[in-house]
Every structure is written in structure tokens, then in C-alpha cells.
């Protein structure tokens, strides 16, 4: 899972896409996911990491993550997701 080039993420959860000029905001878990994506983690690894840290089941996290990636895709922040 790879973020597109030059996407800037700030500590406030502010995301800027210099290619399109769009800006976004995300919640702390969203920031965490993006950080893990920057570390080249796969979807499965991200799910596992989050499940260890937070009180939710993997299946639930995976469902939410797929939705999150779908949004990243529609906002052109990633180019593909399975």
C-alpha cells in the first residue's frame, strides 16, 4: 500500500496533495494508518498492528480499512488498492 508522491501529512492530521491542490483532514487513527503506509506496510500488517493496539477485532478493522483505502483512492491519494 503506497501513498502517492509528495503527499504531505502534518501533526494536526492535515493532508495536502500538491498535485491536485486538495487538502484533507483525518483523525488520529487515520494519521496512524497513513504513517504505517509510509513505512511500506501491507494491509494485513496494518490490520495486525492496529488490532494489537486498539480494542477491536481484526475483521472489523479490516472492514474499516478497506473503506478508508477506498476513500484515499477516490481522493487520488493512492493509485490502487486490491
Amino acid at each position: 500500500m503506497k501513498l502517492n508522491k509528495n503527499i504531505a501529512v502534518s501533526d494536526n492530521g492535515f493532508i495536502f496533495n500538491p498535485l491536485s491542490g486538495d487538502s484533507f483532514s483525518t483523525n488520529p487513527i487515520g494519521q496512524e494508518v497513513i504513517r504505517l503506509m509510509k513505512e511500506q506496510k501491507t494491509k494485513e500488517e496494518i490490520v495486525k498492528t492496529l488490532a494489537q493496539k486498539y480494542n477491536s477485532e481484526e475483521a472489523n478493522i479490516e472492514k474499516d480499512l478497506v473503506d478508508f483505502f477506498q476513500m484515499l483512492l477516490s481522493y487520488q491519494l493512492i493509485s490502487e488498492h486490491e
Binding site: 493532508i15 484533507f24 483532514s25 487515520g30 496512524e32 494489537q52 478508508f68 476513500m71 491519494l77
Partner: peptide
């Protein structure tokens, strides 16, 4: 103890 889960969300700033 695990932290409270909240699903990740991203919103465009219109």
C-alpha cells in the same frame, strides 16, 4: 489495556 478504537476517516476540506 488496549486503546479505544475509532475507525479511520478522511475528509476533504471543501
Amino acid at each position: 489495556t488496549k486503546l479505544t478504537y475509532e475507525r479511520p476517516v478522511i475528509q476533504k476540506l471543501n
